[in-house]
Design a protein around this nucleic acid. Structure first.
Lengths: 191, 191
DNA sequence: TATGTAAACTTAACAATGTTAAGATAGAAT
DNA sequence: ATTCTATCTTAACATTGTTAAGTTTACATA
């Protein structure tokens, strides 16, 4: 199974389309990610995607779900060293750095994941699952320090706000993002 | 000069187009804000806008500039009662409430202003001026409490993050946004 | 006042996009 | 072997941003 297109039926077109979309999104940006260019990259005709997705947005939801999957993986990597406040704070800082770095390294994907474009679309199972996994990472890390829903929202807002302002080019990018993240988190008081 | 379209030349088409765009944006959302629908609303042909703007994005920059103008006006309304820390904190909280309320009451406009869509476009004079006016409001309010660039960024990130998460429907909206803003700002430590 | 020039506008066309309809192909079940 | 159905193709549609070419108007100058 290494020939790339010998059968009439593609075989795994659904996944191939999601991957093609993600590649175009990263390489050429959202404006170039047309349904037709995605189909072209997957080696099928312009209307082929409609056998697997109701419309373009239904495909994009899966691209976003793929993004949340990678995002959650990245957020689960760091682990708190101990239960002492100092280590828990360090853990939270590491999550913040991962969050912002993911946004900067996957600009268009991050915007698709967190933007409003797909808000009114029916979410898929995997989208909801992977999104919840990311949220849980943040929520648990905060609540070990301060068991308060508002604290999670405060921390999330601060980090997400920084990521958003950077990705949307509302603040000039720094060379050292880690230092930037840590410098604002010093003003987050979880007591 | 109250007849609405009697001359071949419109007279004030440039401003009329900006206003028409802003109205469509608020009333029908960004997807309905096509250059053609804007022209239709202003009572001119589809190509008429090109006499006043290089392209659609150049018009949208002016819509965003209009948004920043309103935004800055709103942010300039509250004034600190005194120089005591308590009053300065209260002033900052008020700015946060204004910020988030503006975002929620002008969802599509807020997304146009702060989104990435126009980032690579050449900014107009008024866009830069009105944007700077908004930033100065926030910066000055923070620096009266803590004269540190990182503190401004921390406060801005937190409030902007909350606004973004709400507008992009990543968190479920609360009935009382003021209370929501204040509840996260309690975790912002400016000492 | 008459004339020329440039700005402001119109109509018509173009390629690209998302989507649908109709039909062709092929793998699987009977 | 035949039928059925999912998967795919081709062709068409309306809508979009944009450009080209031509028309109308305002205004400066003679």
């Amino acid at each position: 199974m290494n020939a790339e297109k010998q059968t009439y039926h593609h075989g795994g077109l659904r996944d191939a389309l999601i991957e093609a979309a993600a590649q175009i999104l990263e390489a050429e940006g959202p404006s170039k990610m047309s349904l037709r260019s995605i189909a072209r990259k997957a080696g099928v005709s312009q209307a082929a995607p409609y056998s697997h997705f109701a419309n373009k947005n239904a495909l994009l939801i899966e691209v976003a779900a793929f993004g949340f999957s990678r995002f959650s993986d990245a957020l689960e990597k760091p682990a708190p060293l101990s239960n002492e406040a100092e280590d828990l704070r360090e853990h939270l800082a590491k999550l913040g750095v991962v969050y912002v770095n993911f946004a900067l390294e996957n600009k268009a994907l991050f915007q698709l994941m967190f933007g409003d474009a797909l808000s009114h679309i029916t979410k898929s199972e995997t989208y909801l699952k992977e999104g919840a996994r990311a949220y849980d990472c943040i929520d648990k890390a905060v609540r070990r320090l301060k068991d308060d829903a508002a604290a999670t929202l405060a921390a999330w807002s601060m980090v997400h706000g920084l990521a958003t302002l950077m990705v949307d080019q509302k603040i000039s990018p720094t060379e050292d993002t880690e230092q930037q993240v840590r410098s604002i988190l010093q003003f987050l008081a979880l007591n």
